[in-house]
């Protein structure tokens, strides 16, 4: 009996991610959600620009590769073209919260019926470790070599907190995949974010607090520890908004 198999929604292509990078786990959770809801044949994914740019090789669904930051607008076009399709984006923090902030905020404000998977690793992974809009105060990166100085470059953007102020946003949750309990919770949240769309409810975004051992200069284990000690206190996990549950409760 097979107890652990590769989800159907993943291709056989070997993932290119660094050892200890949590992109891989998140891919698996997305694929499991697609399988569990049995929507692979109707799903269209939008890849972004960042370490996850090659998601179009990994997800076993129709995919389009968007320009840096523009995935929510591309997803809007796909969804409006055929509302029967399940449309998701997979974006990093530089992509979603810096160059693509306008596209993100307005997709949420419109209550666009799409699902966004937002991987926050507090760094620009793909370009070699520059400061991200989500880099922590004091965090050393290639472009904040003396540590992020909040006096000159300001403070990190807390995406879930920000988006949950918008009436259009439906379901906003922040999760992590640093331990078994959190992975289970992340799995539930991601599946719910897709189910909301299947049920025609509206905009869902799941932020996954993630690691980048390579650019953080940490071992895989060290990266998880750094995440727990620094990221989670700054980016508390939890449901920031669930308009759909509130509506159902009324």
């Amino acid at each position: 009996m097979i107890v652990f198999d590769k989800p159907k929604a993943l291709t056989d292509a070997p993932l290119h991610y660094c050892p200890g990078c949590t992109h891989g786990i998140i891919h698996r959770l997305v694929a499991e959600a697609i399988d569990n809801l049995n929507i692979g044949g109707e799903t269209i994914g939008v890849a972004s620009v960042g370490c996850s740019v090659f998601t179009y090789n990994y997800f076993n669904v129709d995919m389009v590769q968007a320009a840096h930051g523009r995935a929510p607008a591309v997803a809007t076009g796909v969804k409006r073209a055929d509302p029967s399709k399940i449309v998701f984006t997979y974006q990093g923090d530089g992509d979603l919260a810096s160059i693509g902030m306008a596209e993100t905020v307005h997709a949420a404000a419109r209550g666009e019926n799409i699902t966004i998977i937002f991987v926050n690793n507090a760094i620009y992974g793909m370009t070699g470790g520059q400061m991200a809009p989500t880099s922590l105060p004091g965090q050393v990166t290639q472009t904040s070599p003396y540590g992020r100085d909040t006096n000159t470059v300001g403070f990190p953007v807390k995406v879930c907190e920000l988006l949950s102020t918008l009436d259009g946003a439906g379901y906003i949750e922040r999760v992590a995949v640093n331990n078994v309990k959190n992975v289970r919770n992340a799995k539930k949240a991601i599946e719910k974010a897709f189910r909301n769309q299947v049920e025609g409810k509206g905009f869902s975004l799941i932020e996954v607090v993630s690691t980048c051992p390579t650019n953080w200069g940490k071992t895989p284990q060290g990266a998880l520890e750094w995440l727990e000690e620094n990221m989670l206190p700054y980016y508390p996990l939890g449901v920031y908004k669930d308009k759909f549950a509130e509506e159902a409760a009324k």
């Binding site: 320009a67 591309v74 076009g77 055929d82 306008a102």
Partner: peptide, 26 residues
């Protein structure tokens, strides 16, 4: 049909990309 006022021209052209990718005349 679909008329959507985008948040910018950048978003508008990317919405066109999405609809065109889905095979529509956009």
């Amino acid at each position: 049909g679909v008329f959507l006022q985008a948040e910018s021209e950048i978003a508008a052209i990317n919405m066109v990309i999405g609809a065109a990718a889905a095979g529509k005349r956009a």
